[in-house]
Design a protein around this nucleic acid. Structure first.
Lengths: 358, 358
DNA sequence: CTGAAAGCGCTTACAG
DNA sequence: CTGAAAGCGCTTACAG
């Protein structure tokens, strides 16, 4: 028995030509008897087609490349998980590479995947000059940015994450409960979804206050104390999961009733559920994996010629989940309660840390 | 200009044969003038060799597959990041797949990579029957388990993580400071490194106490209170990073001096540094990525015939980092202080949650 | 329904 | 140092 059976071996043993064997295994026209025989022999020999030969002949490799700027953060991980699973269902395999934050490496990795003849390329939070992009375009290989784009990748199609819907649901609910002033706990290390929340809230008719805090464990008691001393008091606090939990506990310690006197909303990454707390927090739950699922489906549609991929696609990755920390506010309520127009959307494009915004 | 230049195009334009062009580009014997000319033309045309054709001819694909049982946890992510970067340096690309926790999928993904003709396969925390393994062996393609192995994968080589050295360093230091009783904060959802610490400590001459806690935010005050009431008191607490931070704060609130009356050691994943606290915690810092680096280097050595890969390799992934939470204990010290033999090692094999151990 | 043959793009022993 | 040729394993129009 040869180390690796080829189609030739199968054909020989089945007493047919390679052409017939090929057709039988690819499920094309062939009479039932030979088909059965060929399949049987193939199984016997453990025959598996040689992908390299097939790719050479078929031009396409059924392989997609993904170059990550970083690969060790939550977002990238969840994206990758979803992407690889979704692509797998369409029969595509994923080649992965990471630039580890180095611009030049990003470009060089993109270039290197050209040799692998990937059928398409995902650039996750790309940076660099995109020198190889023209070659991809010339060869008709789509190069799609995920989450964000910058530098030389500005003209590529983009699939980005948005939490617009979830935030608007949360805001609408807050207003219906009588809230007018929402506070955002804002760590130094800016968080994309948190900033997105802030901007969307600002465009709504709610008053938004920012509580700037240091990274690391938050001084929840300090924040709550200063908040309670405000004249027109903030009645909702929005914070990243970790901080939200601490606020919840601190409120308890300070005898501030949640949600009677204060509502708390957490912004939580899906992966955090693993280490999860069981506090009944209201939250905006993020599923960045949805970008991967959408990206896979959009790409395959494009490759099949069923749709065209260009411009930007915003994928809603937020879910609004109401827990026990959303209460009615009447006491602190201001006099006017004018109707508020629907807030415009906002795309949360990437998660690169350290981007300055005011 | 053709969409994709082939070697034939390059040769034609350079006025040489494909053979010569091939040799020139692969840096083999050729006269300097033609070599220069060929390279020039190749650059002009943006020529990049077709990997499929090359693989077909060379038998090897310079591609490695990695099948993950899960891909959304810290460990897998850090492993992948390191693995992909290390392999890249050796010229190998990585194909990724995830079984998403489903046993049958694991097997089927392993099988599917056979078609891609991967030169080697990594099985990360594999589960399932390993039905395709015999075929890999027959084809001389190494299939290596990472972190752990089980089921049908029991006979494959394994590269696992160990924190033996870091724990022994920590224990030695604790003893030198006079500690004799170490407490382990043990959440329901068992943590591999924490359990490993516990077992190694038990085999040393220290007394080990377990504080079983629920998942989610720990009741640090409760734990500390009950600890302070013990007769022969625990003087060191070992906990996962999140819990350790809370213990530190609770000790502060209860006026328990750290490290004067209590030492605290955190077990921390490298990725957690991102969201990091700046508390001067003593810690065992985990870098599971080292398994990836070692795996890549061991594999490449094996493929080059420079070494053989079999049995188990334990990669030390822990670093002992002493911060400000390690203090001298004299008050609670017991009478005897017999010499303690070196503790035997312990391999921390995987991170599958829910494995029952007593 | 089946087979012989061409060809995808590369590399490498073999002559020259 | 260079070129012609064979062949890696597959698929698919083309005859039969």
């Amino acid at each position: 028995m040869k180390v690796r059976a080829t189609l030739h071996d199968v054909a020989e043993r089945a007493g047919v030509s390679v052409a017939t064997a090929s057709r039988a295994l690819s499920g094309r026209k062939s009479n039932k008897k030979t088909l059965g025989r060929v399949r049987e022999v193939a199984a016997e020999l453990g025959y598996v087609a040689n992908g390299a030969a097939r790719s050479l002949r078929n031009v396409r490799t059924m392989t997609v490349g993904a170059v990550f700027n970083q690969l060790h953060d939550h977002l990238s991980t969840e994206l990758l998980d979803a992407l690889v699973s979704a692509l797998d269902q369409y029969g595509y395999s994923l080649l992965v590479a990471t630039a580890q934050g180095v611009e030049e490496r990003f470009d060089s990795l993109v270039h290197r995947f050209r040799e692998r003849r990937v059928d398409a390329l995902f650039c996750v939070n790309p940076s660099g000059k995109g020198v190889a992009l023209a070659r991809y375009a010339a060869a008709g290989v789509p190069a799609i940015c995920l989450f964000s784009k910058s530098g030389g990748y500005e003209n590529q199609p983009l699939i980005a994450a948005s939490i617009h819907e979830a935030v608007n649901l949360a805001l609408a609910r807050l207003r219906s409960l009588g809230h007018q002033i929402v506070g955002v706990i804002r760590p130094r290390r800016r968080s994309r979804p948190l900033e997105a929340f802030r901007e969307i809230a600002r465009k709504s008719c709610m008053t938004v206050r920012s509580y700037e805090v240091h990274d690391g464990p938050i001084d929840a008691v300090g924040v709550l104390n200063s908040m309670m001393n405000e004249q027109q008091r903030t009645t909702v606090l929005v914070a990243l999961q970790t901080d939200a939990v601490r606020l919840f506990e601190a409120a308890d310690a300070l005898s501030i009733l949640v949600p009677g006197a204060l509502s708390i909303i957490a912004i939580r990454n899906r992966a955090q559920q693993m280490t999860g707390t069981r506090l009944p927090l209201s939250m905006i739950l993020l599923s960045p994996g949805r970008v991967g699922v959408e990206a896979a489906s959009a790409l395959v549609g494009h490759l099949r010629g069923e749709r065209t991929l260009w411009g930007s696609i915003a994928v809603e990755v937020g879910s609004w989940i109401e827990g026990g920390t959303m209460g009615t506010i009447t006491t602190v309520r201001a006099a006017t309660s004018a109707e508020c127009p629907a807030a415009p959307g906002h795309v949360w494009r990437d998660h690169a840390a350290g981007t300055k915004r005011s």
